[in-house]
Amino acid sequence: MNRFSYVRPDAVAAAVRERASDPGARFIAGGTNLLDLMKYDVEAPSRLIDITRLPLRDIQELDGGLRIGALVPNSDLAYDRRIEERYPLLASAILAGASPQLRNMATTGGNLLQRTRCVYFYDTATPCNKRTPGSGCSAIGGINRQHAILGASEHCIATNPSDMGVALAALRASVRVAGPDGERTIPFSEFHRLPGDEPQRDNNLAADELILSVDLPAEHFAINYTYLKLRERLSYAFALVSVAAALRLEDGKIAEARLALGGVAHKPWRDEAAEELLRGQPAERASFEQAAGQILSGARGFGENDFKIELARRAVVRALEQAAAGTPQSQSDKRVQ
């Protein structure tokens, strides 16, 4: 880990000022990913701005939805009664990720900023465009079982590793941020980026912006939902493919559908066309297969990860079946419902 200075502001404005004054500075809260990367010399901030004392730890009512403070720990969020009752999809996705210890540390805002698990990104001895722009993408033609099948570029095929983010994408959350010029709100679907020719940029947050909250809209999907995560061991592993699915059913027909995939792209993957395809359709397998076909229509493998296209297709169908039946995937009983 490199040498750095440390500062602990107690107001948002002060934190933003600190960040704006030092381009090498980074905010730190849970630290579960930043310290990990610093120990691998992948990140080397000149200054850490400890934001854990900022007043961003509340979950508040917001026009029928909820405003989740950026510092609310993952476990507090997952076990919050309002989340459990109204947004069980979000609770389930959080509990599918990491470990209880990490969930106690990691924060809502930090989860949005966690970086890829690509083994080349983590290994400073190998080329990686995300870590060292212009050095090349080692994952193309390399170890890429975990890598993207959607939205990748010739410069980067990394995936976003978040589980929580997949549920937030499906729920159409938004991200409220503060910068030197005030606050703005970013729709969740526009928060993360595709790699394009700037894979070093994971998201559209400006360098001097701080996440204040994640806001959930009023629509809950508390009955017909699921978070289905497929991985190489039954817990404490990153997703090969995960699916957040949520439906509103009326008379056996799908009135509203939400669908997002994790583990397959540089961002939690949503496809409005697939959701649109489901609307008005009967809640049955044929509809689900159509939607799965749509969401994966642009999928492309890179060798080792070719299988993820078919796996994702099947996972989407199953997740929609689980959601439609009102039998969400348990995160402790490992039998897939």
């Binding site: 083994v119 080349y120 290994d123 080692s138 390399g142």
Partner: peptide, 22 residues
């Protein structure tokens, strides 16, 4: 990875050993 002659998943997040749930 034969291009680097290197075991690439050199950590125990990516080298999977069984966890309790397994």
């Amino acid at each position: 990875d034969h291009r680097f002659g290197r075991f690439m998943n050199h950590n125990i997040a990516e080298y999977h050993i069984p966890v309790n749930a397994d």
